[in-house]
């Protein structure tokens, strides 16, 4: 009882070795996870607005929605560049990028950020929020944007777009 637990808490064995551990070890490891009630680390989202314009009211609302959906939001705010977003994604090891663009620059800015991600070797999904004409949505998703959210999107829609960009099912399904 104590020994396997003790090992579980202190072992320095590489992860790949865990498949060779005795069954009791596996059990205690999963028990440990439930003790820590941390089955799944939170999704980390870098949230930014590209371009020089605007206010950040909408972006702040989205930040709160994602926090309330148990995610960690690295809030970059206004006037970000593709470089500053990429730097943050690398250092913060973000799972998803949330970008707001309000001055109809999405068709120019989206390919730029996608190219910058490819150049940096980053495979991180991008969700866009803003006023995007219906006709542009297909163009954006074809170029590799994971989802496009309208300003009126609900908290559930926002959270599900982020989870969906990671290939996760909606909560409770």
């Amino acid at each position: 009882m104590l020994s396997p637990m003790y090992l579980a808490a202190t072992s320095n064995k590489p992860l790949s070795d865990s498949s060779h551990q005795p069954a009791s070890h596996q059990e205690s490891a999963s028990h440990q996870a439930s003790v820590q009630s941390q089955n799944q680390p939170p999704i980390r989202v870098v949230l930014a607005k590209l371009g020089l314009d605007g206010h950040d009211r909408g972006l702040k609302v989205v930040a709160r929605m994602l926090r309330d959906a148990s995610m960690e939001v690295i809030y970059l705010g206004l006037r970000q560049t593709t470089e500053s977003v990429i730097a943050a994604v690398e250092q913060e090891d973000a799972d998803v990028i949330g970008l707001s663009m309000h001055n109809a620059g999405h068709l120019a800015l989206a390919p730029r950020i996608l190219q910058a991600l490819r150049d940096a070797g980053l495979d991180v999904p991008v969700v866009i929020g803003g006023i995007v004409p219906e006709s542009d949505i297909a163009t954006l998703t074809e170029m590799g944007i994971s989802a496009v959210l309208h300003p009126g999107s609900s908290a559930v829609e926002v959270a599900e777009a982020v989870r969906g960009s990671l290939g996760e099912q909606p909560v409770g399904k």
Binding site: L66, S70, I74
Partner: peptide, 13 residues
């Protein structure tokens, strides 16, 4: 957040 486990990390900005 103690309620949801989420967080808004605003130090970087």
């Amino acid at each position: 957040s103690p309620l949801t486990g989420g967080a808004i990390l605003g130090d970087r900005i």
